[in-house]
Design a protein around this nucleic acid. Structure first.
Lengths: 214, 214
DNA sequence: TCGCATCCTGACCATATGGTCAATTCAAAG
DNA sequence: CTTTGAATTGACCATATGGTCAGGATGCGA
């Protein structure tokens, strides 16, 4: 028998890792489509292609599995948040942030929906993230924006509300993707349309805050 | 015994009406907080202060009750949509629309959340509204915006994406109200802060589309 | 080959939930 | 007062769901 089996024996460690990500991916999809309350362990198991009891071997409870999904998303979110820094001005910084967040809306639409759902329902499991990590990030970035304003690099706008606007506008393409798709004739946005959306958002906001001179 | 009882006998018709709205209000709240899957008829009944069996007397199934809630919200949405018309230009029309939608986000936050949840989960019950009423409204308003562009009243932007931006920005204050509240020190936005939010949104967008000259 | 810890899973359980129903109360028309 | 149909509700049912568990399979080091 050759060593190159179709199903090669995975290292014990690798088995755990593989199954966990398999389950997490399935869970993210199901939670996004049905919400926490509407999702069932059975359906997640089916999507993952595993028996239900196997889910409980890796994740003790539905809540624990959900929490892992939400935390994963928060990591991705933070990653995009970094693109704000190391920018000399609003055009660069906010532009990069919009680009990053639009890319997340496209590539991780399910994650965005789970996050939105979690927050909409009062953030039962990630309230501490909101109060600590998110709050710190927000005040830091607001201060940065205020600096840009003081330096005359943009018009005086409320930094916090500007951030809300960035979040809202970019996330909308993920959370309300179904609505946009429906209005687009039932078809997902094409590459060209995504680029147009991104450029449109950047143009309006950057011009809106007086960071573009034209 | 006087005719002026504390609990005056309601006309049969009025009883039905009163209980239906009572149930609908409770349902809107519970659906917003828990999602369709997480909401239970028992909890809705408790919030409404009625026995569960009574809910089923007025609304045969959970789905039917949910559908009524969603349709109610759509009505409110349409009402705000009207503020777009009869405007001579973007400052007036879009400004009024933002005002109206921000007011809805404030006064009907629960409804907004139910709507958002419904769309996020693929619009299982209001797909036809999206495909018909919403689509028609959108194309009509997009044409109106295009006219303003052609008349030189604003810069050339993609009308559809501008509409998405309006929806996203205004709805965010309802759907992500909990997040905003948390970042605001755990307190809801004050009257002043709401006004600031509204003015900020209007200023950035109207300047962003070149409808304000400054 | 052996032993062991990890991994797998069908069968099972307690509970919660949507929904039903028959019996009762109540308003108000005749 | 009587009648009639709407309104009310406690008790009940079938099902679905989260979670458990005992026993078997599997990889892997010794």
């Amino acid at each position: 028998m050759s060593m190159s089996e179709n199903i090669r024996p995975l290292r014990r460690n690798a088995i755990r890792q593989q199954n966990e990500t398999l389950i997490l991916q399935a869970a993210e999809k199901v939670f996004a489509e049905a919400g926490f309350g509407g999702a069932t362990m059975q359906l997640i198991a089916d999507v993952a292609g595993l028996p239900k009891a196997n889910l409980h071997y890796y994740f003790a409870t539905k809540e624990e599995l959900y929490r892992c999904v939400v935390e994963n998303i928060f990591e991705i979110w933070l990653q995009a948040a970094a693109s704000f820094d190391n920018a000399s001005g609003p055009v660069e910084g906010i532009g990069a942030y919009i680009d990053a967040k639009m890319e997340i809306s496209r590539r991780h639409a399910d994650g965005s929906k789970v996050w939105a759902s979690e927050v909409m329902h009062g953030a039962p499991v990630i309230q501490d993230y909101l109060e600590n990590t998110l709050r710190e990030w927000t005040t830091g970035r607001a201060a940065l924006i205020q600096n840009w304003i003081d330096d005359g690099k943009m018009k005086p706008v409320d930094p916090e509300h500007l951030l809300y606007m960035l979040w809202a506008t970019t996330q909308h393409y993920a959370d309300f993707g179904h609505q946009i798709e429906t209005l687009n004739g039932g078809r997902p946005l094409s590459d060209t349309q995504w680029r147009a959306a991104k450029e449109n958002v950047k143009a309006i906001i950057l011009r809106g805050i007086g960071a573009l001179r034209d």
